[in-house]
Amino acid sequence: MLQAKNLTKVYNGHPALANVSFTVNPGEIFCLLGANGAGKTTTINLFLNFIEPSDGEAVIGEWNVAEAPLETKKLLAYIPENLMLYPNLTGLENLDYFSNLAGKKHTNKELEAYLAEAGLQPDAVHKRVSNYSKGMRQKVGIAIALAKQAKVLLLDEPTSGLDPKASNEFATLLKKLSTQGVATLMATHDLFRAKETGTHIGIMKEGKLVETLTTEQINHADLEKLYLQHMN
């Protein structure tokens, strides 16, 4: 569903990403680990067509992202570290607005159901987003993905800054989506969450994917050991 083929991005002669290749199949959650500047966000931006690859290609479904950005965007949903919505619209209105941009038309009832599914408390649905916490905004982001019926989820450190309960709820939602066949690529610093939620783990260092493994192969302690080994 989601494939990086020798993805390379060079900034002023300095490689930010070098020959990165991996595949995320439907139902898999691929967690990218690595220090700041290792190339995690660059990878995600390449899948979003926000930057142009110097070499290689990012593929979503059967489309090369750089060649068919509008086609690939029909398939994907994106939740950045700090998801921002229109503050003077309500949660429901934001959801309606963005899912319409995505080409979906839902009734208010359906939209409310998506927000409920994403875990947003019912009394917040019709309040302006300016009063929302970060966790609530992330939930609207999930609801947008649900309403859009996205096949691919791109997450850039979505749980950083969330309290443990919110973080846990978020992980549950991701798992639920993966059972529905959504392919997820998530950049994160949270080794625990990666092991708990992810199906696969990739460790990045200085623009290279240095390790790929499935979460079943490893326990928490070994994962941390392996990660630190690569960082040092």
Binding site: L48, F50, L70, E71, K73, K74, L76, A77, Y78, P80, N82, L83, M84, L85, Y86, P87, F98, L101, A102, G103, G141, I144, L154
Partner: peptide, 18 residues
């Protein structure tokens, strides 16, 4: 500047049209 731009840009709409 407020950050809503990125969420819009990942939707399948042409930015100039939008």
């Amino acid at each position: 500047e407020s950050g809503t731009m990125r969420l819009t840009l990942v939707q399948p709409v042409a930015p100039t049209r939008w």
